[in-house]
Design a protein around this nucleic acid. Sequence first.
DNA 1: CTGTTAGCGCTTTCAG
DNA 2: CTGAAAGCGCTAACAG
Lengths: 339, 339
Amino acid sequence: MKTIKDIAKELGLSVSTVSRALNDKPDIKKETKEKILEEMKRLNYSPNANARSLIQKKSNIIGLMLSDITDPFFSEVALGVEEVSSKSGYQVIYGNTFLNLEKEKRFLSSLLERKIDGLIMKPGKLDEELLRLIEQLEIPIVFLRKLRENEQHLNVSSIDVNHYKAAYRAVEYLIKLGHVNIGFIGMSKDVSEEEDRLKGFLDCLENHNINYTDDNIIISGTGIEHGGTGVKQLLNKKSNITAIFTANDLLAIGALEWLVKNNYKVPENISVVGFENLEISSLHWINLTTVDLPRKKIGIQAAEMLMNMVSSDHVKKEEVELDTKLIIRKSTGGNQLHS
Amino acid sequence: MKTIKDIAKELGLSVSTVSRALNDKPDIKKETKEKILEEMKRLNYSPNANARSLIQKKSNIIGLMLSDITDPFFSEVALGVEEVSSKSGYQVIYGNTFLNLEKEKRFLSSLLERKIDGLIMKPGKLDEELLRLIEQLEIPIVFLRKLRENEQHLNVSSIDVNHYKAAYRAVEYLIKLGHVNIGFIGMSKDVSEEEDRLKGFLDCLENHNINYTDDNIIISGTGIEHGGTGVKQLLNKKSNITAIFTANDLLAIGALEWLVKNNYKVPENISVVGFENLEISSLHWINLTTVDLPRKKIGIQAAEMLMNMVSSDHVKKEEVELDTKLIIRKSTGGNQLHS
DNA sequence: CTGTTAGCGCTTTCAG
DNA sequence: CTGAAAGCGCTAACAG
């Protein structure tokens, strides 16, 4: 491996002069610089970023901690993050955690050792140790979700959509279509984003004086198959349901599939609204009314926020909330029982 | 930031002793070691991986160059790669190139400076400069596709499925179902994987003495929408087509969508076979017969190969070819015109 | 404009 | 078993 020394020796110069040429410093004669740059090319020299990091106390690396890169939401976020970061000269070290505490800790520890300059992360529920780890990093951080109760003291920024408002609007749309018996199919009680969506759902019903019981709400799981089991349970408990709001598109698609197989007509008998606007949700057969999340934008903006933070010493905490859009397609229609 | 010096000073020891404790070296008294480890915890010490990399000439970082992480194929590969690498103590720097030569070069150059230990990559068509860059890296490399003509001299390993055989088998299946007028919808002439698939398609027809013309083949594009335009063109030119083999699932799904909208019945009027086995291809409405690619396995095995290579000085070139499986679903059926 | 020097945080001889 | 010293490749004062 060629070093700055090799160049210097070859040209009879000092390493500092070579360094100056390498870093576009002003105090160097044009010709010397050109000569050096040429020699670098000739010797296939490539500077050692680790050595540079060591002395400058800046690695030009950021971390990206996700739960699962195969989730279309995160892969688009990751795309946006990498795009913005690489443009600013940063490399991205990425890791999947599946919201597993141990994996989260291991990944953050490894980033801590690498002395990264910034971090974009979607953590699960943080325990004391993890909170300490995050503080210990002492670098700008952007959360890909809102800060929770026990995280308010952290000096980290965040970006997320307003899940509450998004859900509220979606349900309001169903109510305007004449639906009064509306079910909810969720993923898990432990996901705070879902909590917000559920709250939006419930508040909307209440504000419109619509009655509901616990039976209107099924917590089913996170995959397509849970959409099926979800509707089934829901209709078992409340056979008069005419509309369903699900916590994500996969659940909605699973529900749709189950409904079709069991001879329900969508939207004639039952309306279904999803959440996420996956690419496949616009397919002819699915045509799902759903809430669009600006996924790539989240990634881009998260990275832009981080780039600003790493390049300024005064880091001010910022909590960004992006807006969503209800995409109306063919899985929703007027309530036939009331029209 | 705490350093090894702080620990040493605090305990009245030398840095080398601290280093020994840190690295589990044998020549250190048990009690000293314990004392040091405790002090490290107390001071929240975390070693500097960059300093270590510098002296050990080993970064414990690998690179992962993909065309597009939002492609389900690559996101699963990325998942497998990260899983295996992190288990072996390696961090993954990832980048998207969209097969753009400039982006590929920029990304590789940045990896070159970072002095990474290994690289997994899915490049496009390599030009001279890129070939030189790859050699210049002087590290173990695994390609996520077969080596092409002008790359044979490279000392890089590769892993891929046998696209030719997979296509051949899929088409053979259609022929066994009685089809003789079979069309092909492809993405682009520049994708070597597709070349192999097309060759498998053509060889299979020839070996079964089935006639075809250029009109049996449409190169349409890469997204769902191109599936639609593809079938349309195909049926315009050859209205007697009863089966279609597409170069990927998205094309097949787009074709399916167009067929349904235009009142063709699948598989009664037309059979469709895809390639990739996306998750959505098993949906009730789609139910696509397709070729399953072991995506996650490719990622895992690529990383395992790389881990072996980086931890042994004698790197031997290896070209792995994984097998595929034809998944038979409801988008294919017997040729009604002949039965 | 260029060279000398010190040192980033760590590992690794080599003595003792 | 422990310490002193050298040095990985580079940057950043400070002289000149």
